[in-house]
């Protein structure tokens, strides 16, 4: 298009440039807007990175675009202080536990919902889904009491179980979508061939929906990693997650913004790594198997 406009308009330069301009603008408007949007998206993150490289005094006195006197001191503090780096380990351990628990209960359930009709199936499905709608704030005190009563308070397992509240319903929902996309004939052929249900499920069926499993794991990781309220309520010292460690950076001289920013940047990295690995599935995955 653009090429044609350019060549055909050669004799009249004035019109040519106008034509070229309009052709270019209609063609380029999408990418330009997208570029602007991505700038809007990345600027706050850049601002956090910028502050993480600065000292608290400089942060409070400068709004220059580039960091003043950049250094890695804040990161050094975090990597040498066990109270900081152990809180990352705590966070990662309850997120991992949550993904394992969620997938192991949600896989058979999603299979049941995608393949069978049974008494109360629709009601159970909706009831599960209602838990995704429950505001965590509603459950704060009961959770605290329940997990204290069974002796799980301040362990990663308590947070992992509490996060099942919203992750299990979502996992069943996503997996059901993916599993419904697998033709029933595969199940029937396997049973005719003499496969038992567990053997069929583990060796034939699960590999077929592995993209769905990956996507589900991604979502569980995401929602467990970003949650603050329950993680904060169910832990005190031993299992303190990073999101909570960050709320306690108050020292004698007030909040240490530089340290806080550095800790914040480090909480973005695991997510960024996960996105990088699933980048090719992410678009399909966000449709939750339902397109």
């Amino acid at each position: 298009m653009t090429m044609q406009t350019q060549t055909s308009a050669q004799p009249a330069p004035g019109i040519a440039s106008r034509l070229k301009g309009s052709a270019l603008s209609s063609r380029a408007i999408g990418p330009i807007l997208l570029g602007l949007y991505l700038c809007f998206q990345m600027l706050p993150i850049y601002w956090l990175v910028r502050m993480s490289l600065m000292q608290p005094g400089d942060i409070m006195s400068s709004s220059a675009f580039l960091p003043t006197a950049p250094s890695f001191d804040n990161y050094r503090t975090i990597f040498t202080d066990p109270a900081w780096y152990m809180s990352y380990v705590n966070s990662l351990s309850y997120v991992a536990l949550n993904v394992v628990i969620t997938l192991s209960v949600a896989l058979p359930a999603a299979y049941a919902f995608s393949r069978y009709k049974f008494i109360g199936d629709k009601h159970v499905f909706f009831w599960l889904f209602t838990n995704r709608m429950a505001p965590p704030a509603v459950f704060l005190l009961p959770f605290f009491q329940l997990y204290s009563a069974v002796g799980l308070f301040d362990t990663p397992l308590a947070v992992a179980l509490a996060h099942c509240l919203f992750n299990v319903p979502l996992a069943v929902w996503i997996l059901e979508g993916f599993m419904s996309g697998v033709p029933r004939e595969i199940d029937e052929t396997a049973y005719v061939d003499g496969y038992s249900f567990p053997r069929f499920f583990l060796t034939v069926f699960l590999p077929l929906v592995r993209a769905g499993i990956g996507v589900t794991a991604f979502f569980c990781f995401m929602f467990s990693w970003v949650e603050l309220l329950l993680a904060k309520t169910l832990t005190s010292i031993e299992a303190k997650p990073i999101v909570v460690a960050m709320t306690r950076t108050v020292s004698a001289s007030g909040l240490d913004w530089g340290l806080l920013a550095a800790a914040g940047v480090l909480t973005i990295l695991p997510g960024a790594a996960v996105i990088y690995f699933v980048r090719n599935y992410i678009a399909k995955g966000f449709a939750l198997g339902r397109v």
Binding site: Q41, M222, V226, V243, I268, G271, I282
Partner: peptide, 10 residues
């Protein structure tokens, strides 16, 4: 997708 994986308090 980056903002989706940043903890809420961050």
């Amino acid at each position: 997708a980056l903002p989706l994986l940043i903890p809420f308090n961050v």
